[in-house]
Computed example of a mutant assay.
Amino acid sequence: MSRVYLVRHASHDRVHATLCGRMPGIVLGAQGRAEAAALAARLAASGAALVLSSPLERAVETAEPIAARLGQPLGIAPELDEIAFGDWTGRRFADLADDPAWRRWNEARATARPPGGESMAEAQGRVLGLLERLSGTCVLVSHRDVIRSVLVRVLGLSLDAYDRIAVDPGSLSLIEFWPGGGRLVGLNEQPATA
């Protein structure tokens, strides 16, 4: 069994306006750096012996102070990468609102796929494969929908239930995970920033 802290990367300037996906160069703003420091303080006593991050800059910048506080090296895990949003990458949410494919994506995550991108089921499969290889207490820094895909699985829900779970920037959720199962211990905790 593993005890896994699922951390969503901290805030950046486009977090609520643009579907950044795997765009390079998206880095934390001042608020995000404060959130990352608060996460590091919160996780200092977690006993985590492994810290892994998505390869994207915003996730790495969130994970670095956590790893430093824990005295652990930071590992990069491609399995934690954001969903590949294909043609939607870099588009403003407001511009996507009238797109029928965007509406389908948000109504049927179990079966829909972004144009030229990856399905949520594929993202779920890659991150669950990683979780099955872990043991002990770990911190994984990733992205909202990747984390949601794990949480719906642990709760025994369909991917279509993804939007019933809040995973805010700079938040952590805690699961206990074992081959074939798991349980939710904590959800969407946002440590107070200084």
Score class of each variant (00 low, 15 high):
29 G>E: 13
39 L>R: 04
41 A>Y: 02
54 S>D: 11
13 D>Q: 08
39 L>G: 06
56 L>N: 10
55 P>M: 06
38 A>L: 12
61 E>P: 05
50 L>C: 14
50 L>K: 07
53 S>Q: 03
9 H>R: 10
10 A>S: 15
13 D>K: 03
35 E>G: 06
8 R>F: 03
62 T>E: 13
23 M>I: 04
61 E>K: 07
57 E>R: 13
58 R>D: 02
45 A>F: 02
58 R>K: 05
11 S>Q: 14
33 R>W: 06
26 I>G: 05
36 A>W: 15
25 G>E: 11
48 A>E: 04
23 M>C: 11
12 H>I: 01
47 G>Q: 00
55 P>A: 05
55 P>F: 10
35 E>S: 05
34 A>I: 08
59 A>R: 08
41 A>W: 06
29 G>L: 03
43 L>Q: 05
42 R>W: 08
53 S>A: 12
23 M>F: 04
20 C>I: 06
62 T>H: 11
18 T>V: 15
16 H>F: 01
42 R>P: 00
12 H>F: 04
49 A>M: 00
56 L>A: 13
56 L>G: 07
21 G>P: 06
18 T>N: 00
44 A>R: 11
40 A>V: 10
52 L>C: 02
22 R>H: 05
61 E>Y: 13
58 R>T: 08
22 R>V: 06
15 V>M: 00
55 P>Q: 04
20 C>E: 14
26 I>H: 04
49 A>S: 11
27 V>F: 11
60 V>T: 10
47 G>Y: 00
7 V>R: 04
58 R>E: 02
31 Q>I: 13
52 L>S: 01
24 P>G: 14
22 R>W: 11
7 V>I: 04
20 C>F: 00
52 L>Q: 09
56 L>F: 15
45 A>P: 00
29 G>W: 06
10 A>V: 10
10 A>F: 12
13 D>N: 06
18 T>Y: 00
30 A>G: 03
47 G>K: 00
12 H>P: 00
46 S>N: 04
59 A>P: 10
36 A>H: 15
37 A>C: 09
33 R>D: 02
56 L>S: 09
42 R>D: 01
10 A>K: 08
47 G>D: 01
37 A>G: 09
30 A>K: 12
54 S>H: 10
49 A>T: 13
7 V>P: 03
38 A>Y: 12
47 G>M: 00
9 H>K: 12
25 G>S: 07
56 L>R: 12
48 A>C: 08
28 L>V: 11
36 A>R: 13
39 L>A: 07
34 A>P: 03
25 G>I: 08
35 E>M: 09
36 A>C: 12
57 E>V: 13
8 R>D: 03
18 T>H: 01
20 C>M: 01
40 A>G: 07
51 V>S: 05
33 R>P: 01
32 G>D: 14
12 H>M: 00
21 G>A: 06
25 G>D: 14
7 V>S: 04
22 R>T: 10
59 A>V: 12
26 I>L: 03
30 A>H: 08
48 A>Q: 09
52 L>G: 01
49 A>V: 10
38 A>C: 09
44 A>N: 02
40 A>L: 05
41 A>G: 10
51 V>F: 12
35 E>R: 06
55 P>I: 11
47 G>I: 01
34 A>S: 14
46 S>G: 03
16 H>K: 02
34 A>F: 02
13 D>Y: 00
9 H>I: 12
15 V>T: 07
